[in-house]
């Protein structure tokens, strides 16, 4: 089926643009949806008796526009998931993200656990080897597409009885400041690009090895304790961070 591609060779509009525009239109109308496979360049040029260079140019344009993507050895796919644009200075605040993107963002807690297995997190939280933390794993979705996988680490010694108080709708700031009355003073973040593991890619509905933006955030209170450590995994293709920087 490729009835969504329309070509009129009798008009002056270039053929590559006609192909690109018809596919864009089909995506915008919802005839083509996220992860739908597109015909190969060869199939299009055979059907419409046009050169492969023209089809190639159309696909390149669509890739540049972020409408489609190529997966090596598999083919070309629609990739019109919403891109979440976030001001770097407020990336942690999902209520604001909600307003700006005008789409409903939902959150599900998929794991709640007590552990001391993650050595990096133990170090970040300045815990001793035998001290445990609570691990909360959340998945945020927009229009059913995952936009963020979040692992929250809370030292057990600072959050007594969290298991009985836990509510999946909790806001992390509410929990820290209002439920447990910590005097949170600042947070410390670093941004790094990483390749998705198999498990993370399944949760985020992307391919294994796809680029992720990992944002690691430590929250510090007035006694200089690390009261919370969060690892946020954003699918690179669907997340953009914007920042304005001034010269000194």
């Amino acid at each position: 089926m490729m009835d969504y591609i329309h070509i009129n060779k009798l008009i002056t509009k270039s053929i590559y643009k006609q192909i690109a525009d018809s596919i864009t239109e089909a995506i915008d109308k919802g005839e083509l949806q996220y992860n739908d496979k597109l015909p190969t360049e060869k199939e299009i040029c055979q059907l419409f008796s046009i050169s492969q260079t023209v089809v190639k140019k159309a696909y390149e344009q669509l890739i540049l526009d972020g409408k489609i993507r190529r997966i090596k050895g598999k083919g070309t796919y629609v990739t019109n998931r919403d891109v979440i644009k976030t001001d770097l200075h407020s990336f942690y605040n999902f209520e604001i993200m909600n307003q700006e993107n005008e789409s409903k963002i939902t959150k599900e807690t998929i794991i709640l656990d007590r552990s001391n297995k993650d050595i990096s997190s133990i170090r970040e939280l300045k815990l001793k080897n035998d001290e445990k933390y609570y691990l909360i794993v959340n998945l945020f979705k927009s229009k059913h597409n995952p936009i963020l996988l979040q692992r929250i680490y809370l030292p057990m010694k600072y959050y007594k009885k969290l298991d009985t108080l836990f509510d999946s709708n909790f806001d992390i700031f509410q929990l820290i400041e209002h439920t447990y009355h910590y005097d949170f003073t600042h947070m410390h973040s670093s941004f790094s690009p990483i390749n998705a593991s198999k498990a993370d890619s399944l949760l985020l509905n992307i391919e294994a090895d796809d680029a992720l933006y990992l944002v690691r955030t430590k929250m510090i209170d007035s006694k200089d304790n690390v009261i919370c450590y969060i690892c946020n995994y954003y699918p690179g293709e669907f997340t953009e961070f914007e920042v304005t920087v001034h010269a000194i």
Binding site: K85, N195, T239, E240, V243, T244, H246
Partner: peptide
């Protein structure tokens, strides 16, 4: 003259 302001968009890509 010097650059005074920069508007950046960053994303993770392969």
């Amino acid at each position: 003259f010097k650059a005074a302001l920069s508007k950046r968009v960053t994303k993770a890509v392969n």
